[in-house]
């Protein structure tokens, strides 16, 4: 049985921390106990290749993913194949998971959309340059950033739940890939401002770390 405590084993603190962030680092251990189950499972998969954690993640997401890909147009017969591919990709690309930059559902959403697009399109979709060497994920995550991002994601879910049914339907269709960008402009959106600011802080921090690394 995996518990959040398993993740509390002391690890060396990343050498790239700048002085201003020391308070966050000392508070890290206590805060990590507050990670969501999904994040804890995903980090165990990433860092320990933990199959028990993978089973829990599967139990949480498989039925949601099946509902999601069927709503996005996958025939019932194909839906479980897509779920299988998505879950296998989660396992294989776990080293790319970075809880400071994307909450678990957001990361799995991207994998699910990419998988479904790959089925339809011949050409690979153009992707932005990576910011860092993403294979080096054994960096100690900044717990404050991880938790703040989880909280913002919770707020998004609540905001979505509070929408009038017709509006919620439009948002769902937008993120299921059923609307053109012109149609999305009409669909008044979710409050994305605060989560964007939070993610931006994480990106700025990463950028400064990269700069520190280059200067060493």
């Amino acid at each position: 049985m995996l518990s959040a405590n398993d993740l509390l084993a002391p690890k060396p603190i990343a050498a790239t921390m700048s002085a201003g962030r020391e308070t966050i680092v000392t508070a890290n251990a206590g805060r990590k106990a507050a990670y969501s189950e999904q994040t804890v499972w995903m980090l165990a998969i990433r860092d320990q290749r933990d199959k028990a954690a993978f089973a829990k993640l599967f139990d949480h997401y498989a039925a949601r993913l099946k509902g999601f890909v069927m709503r996005a147009g996958a025939p019932k017969a194909q839906a479980e194949d897509i779920v299988q591919e998505v879950m296998l990709t989660v396992w294989r690309k776990a080293h790319l998971f970075d809880p400071e930059r994307a909450q678990v559902s957001s990361w799995i959403y991207q994998i699910a959309r990419n998988r479904q697009i790959d089925v339809i399109r011949k050409e690979a979709r153009p992707v932005p340059e990576a910011l860092a060497n993403d294979d080096e994920s054994d960096d100690e995550p900044d717990a404050g950033q991880v938790i703040a991002l989880e909280q913002e994601s919770d707020k998004l879910r609540q905001a979505l739940a509070k929408l009038a049914p017709a509006q919620r339907e439009m948002i769902e269709r937008a993120y299921l890939g059923e609307l053109t960008h012109t149609e999305i402009r009409e669909a008044t959106g979710l409050p994305l401002g605060t989560i964007k600011s939070r993610i931006r802080l994480g990106l700025e921090r990463l950028r400064h770390e990269l700069k520190d690394l280059r200067q060493e």
């Binding site: 039925a63 994307a102 879910r157 989560i195």
Partner: peptide, 22 residues
């Protein structure tokens, strides 16, 4: 950052959509 915010919104849709048993 804004793209990641939209991906988070997509994650919220994935979390709240009607599930289908597997």
């Amino acid at each position: 950052a804004e793209l990641a915010a939209h991906e988070a919104a997509g994650g919220a849709v994935l979390d709240t959509i009607a599930a289908e048993s597997v």
